[in-house]
Amino acid sequence: MQPTSIDLPTAGRLSLWGDVRRPALLSVAMLGSMPQRETTVSFECRTSGQRRHYFTGPLLLDVLRAAEPLFDPGERKDRLRYLLAVLGRDGHRAVLSWGEIDPEFGNTPALLAVTMDCQDLTEQGPHLVMPGDRCGSRHISQVTGIRVCAADRLWG
Rank of each mutant, 00 (worst) to 15 (best):
M1L: 14
Q2A: 14
P3F: 13
S5K: 08
I6E: 15
L8D: 12
T10S: 10
A11W: 04
G12I: 15
R13I: 15
W17C: 10
G18W: 06
D19A: 06
D19C: 04
D19H: 03
V20N: 00
P23V: 12
P23Y: 04
V28M: 02
G32H: 02
E38I: 13
T39D: 13
T40A: 11
T40D: 10
T40I: 15
V41N: 00
V41P: 04
V41Q: 01
F43W: 07
C45F: 03
R46L: 13
R46K: 11
S48R: 11
G49C: 09
G49Y: 03
Y54N: 02
Y54A: 07
Y54W: 07
F55Q: 05
F55V: 11
F55C: 10
T56A: 05
T56N: 02
G57C: 15
L59H: 02
L61C: 02
L61G: 00
V63C: 04
V63A: 01
R65E: 04
A67F: 07
A67K: 00
E68I: 14
E68D: 08
P69A: 01
P69V: 05
G74P: 07
G74Q: 07
G74N: 08
G74S: 06
R76P: 07
D78A: 13
R81D: 09
R81S: 14
L84H: 01
L84S: 07
A85V: 11
A85Q: 04
A85S: 10
L87M: 09
W98Q: 01
D102H: 01
P103H: 03
G106N: 04
T108D: 05
L111G: 00
L111T: 02
L111S: 02
V114C: 06
T115R: 10
D117A: 04
D117L: 07
L121S: 01
L121Q: 03
Q124S: 13
G125Q: 02
P126W: 01
L128A: 05
L128P: 04
V129F: 03
V129A: 00
D133V: 12
C135A: 11
R138A: 10
I140M: 06
S141I: 10
V143I: 13
I146C: 03
R147M: 14
D152Q: 06
D152M: 09
D152E: 09
D152T: 09
L154P: 14
L154F: 15
W155K: 00
W155S: 12
